[in-house]
Design a protein around this nucleic acid. Sequence first.
DNA 1: AGACAATAGTGCAGGGACCGAACGAATGGG
DNA 2: CCCATTCGTTCGGTCCCTGCACTATTGTCT
Lengths: 393, 393
Amino acid sequence: MQSQGQVRSANLAAALACLRDGGPRSRARLAADTGLTKATVSSLVAELVERGLVAEGAVHRPGSVGRPGTLVELDGRGVCGIGVEVNVDYLAVLALDLGGAVRWESRLALDVPGLRPVEVLARASAMVAEARAGGAAGAVGITVAVPGGVQGSVVRTAPNLPGWVGTDVAAGLADLGLPVTVGNDADLSALAEVSAGPHAGVPDLVYLTGEVGVGGGVVTGGQLLRGSTGLGGEVGHLALTPGDAPCGCGRRGCWETVVGLGALLRAAADPDDPLRDPGRDLEDRLADLLARARDGDARTLEALTGIGTGLGVGAAVLVALFDPAVVVLGGYFAVVGEFLLDPLRTALAQRVDAADRVALSTLGFTAAVRGGAHVALQPVFTDPTTVPLEASA
Amino acid sequence: MQSQGQVRSANLAAALACLRDGGPRSRARLAADTGLTKATVSSLVAELVERGLVAEGAVHRPGSVGRPGTLVELDGRGVCGIGVEVNVDYLAVLALDLGGAVRWESRLALDVPGLRPVEVLARASAMVAEARAGGAAGAVGITVAVPGGVQGSVVRTAPNLPGWVGTDVAAGLADLGLPVTVGNDADLSALAEVSAGPHAGVPDLVYLTGEVGVGGGVVTGGQLLRGSTGLGGEVGHLALTPGDAPCGCGRRGCWETVVGLGALLRAAADPDDPLRDPGRDLEDRLADLLARARDGDARTLEALTGIGTGLGVGAAVLVALFDPAVVVLGGYFAVVGEFLLDPLRTALAQRVDAADRVALSTLGFTAAVRGGAHVALQPVFTDPTTVPLEASA
DNA sequence: AGACAATAGTGCAGGGACCGAACGAATGGG
DNA sequence: CCCATTCGTTCGGTCCCTGCACTATTGTCT
């Protein structure tokens, strides 16, 4: 705490957070809720209006005697955060405004196989430029989700994106002139789950995403678990059943060899089955598998039950260690979740007391970009003075 | 941030933390290190001196040209925090002053078997009173370590202290007139490890303590992992090898049935061996076992190797999930650590990359009380204005 | 209809805290 | 002996919050 300038920032942030979390209210209510005086709140609100972050709304319906207050509400229009997801076969962009509304969403399939990182980032940059020209005016930052480990803005490990190791993602998007941060996709998805949807505000949550492998993101005490080398919460290579199937990491029995999408497809179909045609799009094959399961195909159901049980075994460890309020299943787990939850809960109940703390993600495949956009917005909530005063009188 | 009063508190805290972490220095250095101006630092130091938290030391030897500065240093004498440990067969008290020096240490064996919590707490209260009359003047708070789960100041679960469930520990020490907080013993031990000793300042650390069961405390990002119901970091009942030995929790295959002290004694000795005589003190039996191991007794060594391997299997999971800079072994693990580390590292290396991140605790059985005393001191560092101005001068 | 109570929002003086600059103090070097 | 250098303090200025007074607006009671 250097000087009173930071007091101002902190109080602006407190007022803004209050409006974000509790919705519109009068200046008097805001004063009561923040513990500041009405005079101070008036001054804070005036500054936030000048910065285009809040706006006066309707007059509050009286309800009881006394002069009615003028509602003050978050005005997200002037400011938005942009999330970008780089994945094996697609790019995605999503922009959130300050109020949490989606202002832009786009997706681009990467059907050219041998594309280099620089070229992919150039396309991502173009997508962001398009977003800013479209609905995402007033961008304050970009956060990029990558399926791998990240240090600073450099990709350090990326089992499914081997060519990206060593790439400085921020440098590739520097031409946009916005601050760029980079994060693991599962971590950002976990943040998305605690920032929106049914689990908004939950301070202790574990997110599991089923892809080819298994990704994990852990939020404890409202903070993302990072660990000493940034690999905290990485669940894919947990050694739960030593001596089992070989894993891409060189070891055996990693959890993702049990519950990854590859394991599901192997268990559900013979090698010559179209489900296991590596030339087909994974989402299509997953849709086929879901259709079979809904038709009641015995082998498919059995495979899914196996995945659910395997998930339960691992989730038991996660629940015991992290004690989360909920374990959220995303990625392909959410797609076929209806067939996973029962065996998962059964396996969980045999190992821990809290077997009902499992839920399916409702954010679908946009979780990572949404989390990225959310992260990009954080500086505004931390210090609203980062947004310049509007020139408008 | 309400007003500038809190700015003052924050800056006092910053100055104090700077002196604690970086040692004595002149006001000018302190100004440079905190980013505040010399004028402000002079004022802050004057107030900290008035509160008895810092003192002027020797004149700094010049070194180079210019007026030499007066060293300012932490003065711990006026203030101390008290840690109390309630365990199955003993009570322990330890007082730390602000500088981290031990000002009092005492231990009391509880040889009366059927003692009720109220009676135990009365003895603890007397021990604290004795400490305050002895070396621990200026106590600012008490933190009690209990071997179990805690909510607020009430014991919620205590497998080894069944009579204590529901006990309000703070109420039992209320007569001392000091703020009392209560925590899990392994959690407090973990905090002790990051506050003193070779791992001081490490922000990501896992602490494992071998007792009858196994306790765990996890620090991530400098914060204790608590979880949604306060059970985060509880490692004893991890389900690592389902279908194994029955555990006191009613399930099977819990980790503590593999690596707890009971498992070691069962593996190392026949039922009629004095090692397994339940009437003998556990520490004595442990000393005997250690002597046998040092004599090279094959069965003992084999049992210890088994424990080490079992520890490695579980530690692999912890390392993968929490990505700590180090896993510290305390309790009985530290006592027989010389025989555990090799098999532990071998098992770990088969499962994760970072197999060298294991160390033995050097704090011995005082870890929990030390952590408690440290926690009791925290409010002073968070807000130095909680310490009253001294009447002197 | 009019008076009164209750609530919302603003204006103004006051005080606390930090900053920047200037100044005295203490030391080593030339 | 003078000067550059560094330390610590003093003093005026600025910023921001507070508390109180004051106006504005509405409902209720007589």
